[in-house]
Every structure is written in C-alpha cells, then in structure tokens.
Computed example of a mutant assay.
Amino acid sequence: MSEIRFEIWKSTEDGQWYWHVGSVGNNEILARSTDGYVNRSDCLHSLQLVRRGGASARVFDRDTAQFLAMPT
C-alpha cells in the first residue's frame, strides 16, 4: 500500500479552507471535505477528527442496516 498524505489548502475560488486525503504514490484522492471552512483552525480540527477516529471507526452498511466485520 502506498503512503497516505493529508493536505489542506485555501481555495482561490471561495477563500475557504478544505482538506483531502490522498495516496502519495499515484496522487489519488481517497477522501475530501465536502464543506469549506472560513478558518484554517476549523479545517485542521475537522481533519484531526478524521485522523483520530478513522482507524477505529466501524463501517455501517446502509443497505443491510448492519455493521460490517472488517479486518484490522
């Protein structure tokens, strides 16, 4: 698996801050913020929530209304 990188940036279009998670090897975007943040600190806070909870978050399948057993 390639290295994962978190990036933040300020949009030149709307002046808000955004984040995304990408794969360094092929520059593929794996996840991104859907909302922009007025403050850089709010953007970083949102990203920290994803980083902290991501590894332990359970996966919920909406079609079956059940949590999936995922390998760790």
Rank of each mutant, 00 (worst) to 15 (best):
M1D: 08
M1W: 04
M1P: 12
M1Y: 08
M1Q: 10
M1A: 13
E3F: 01
E3V: 03
I4C: 02
I4V: 15
R5I: 11
R5C: 05
R5T: 07
F6P: 00
F6S: 00
E7K: 05
E7S: 06
I8T: 14
I8L: 03
I8Q: 02
W9E: 03
W9V: 00
W9M: 01
S11M: 04
T12A: 15
E13R: 13
D14Q: 03
D14L: 03
Q16A: 07
Q16R: 14
W17T: 00
Y18R: 05
Y18S: 01
Y18W: 05
W19S: 00
H20V: 01
H20C: 11
V21D: 00
G22P: 00
G22Q: 09
S23N: 14
G25A: 15
G25I: 02
G25T: 08
N26G: 02
N26M: 01
N27D: 14
E28N: 04
I29H: 07
I29V: 12
L30W: 09
L30M: 15
A31M: 12
A31F: 07
R32E: 11
T34I: 11
T34K: 15
D35M: 07
G36S: 10
G36V: 06
V38M: 07
V38W: 09
R40D: 07
R40P: 02
D42M: 06
H45T: 11
S46M: 07
S46Q: 11
L47T: 00
Q48P: 00
Q48K: 12
Q48I: 08
V50G: 01
R51W: 08
R52L: 11
A55N: 09
S56T: 12
A57K: 12
A57R: 14
R58Y: 09
R58F: 09
V59E: 05
D61K: 06
R62G: 02
T64C: 07
T64E: 15
A65H: 14
A65K: 15
Q66A: 12
Q66I: 07
F67Q: 10
F67D: 12
F67V: 07
F67Y: 15
L68A: 15
L68F: 04
A69I: 10
A69E: 13
M70L: 14
M70W: 05
P71M: 04
P71C: 04
T72L: 09
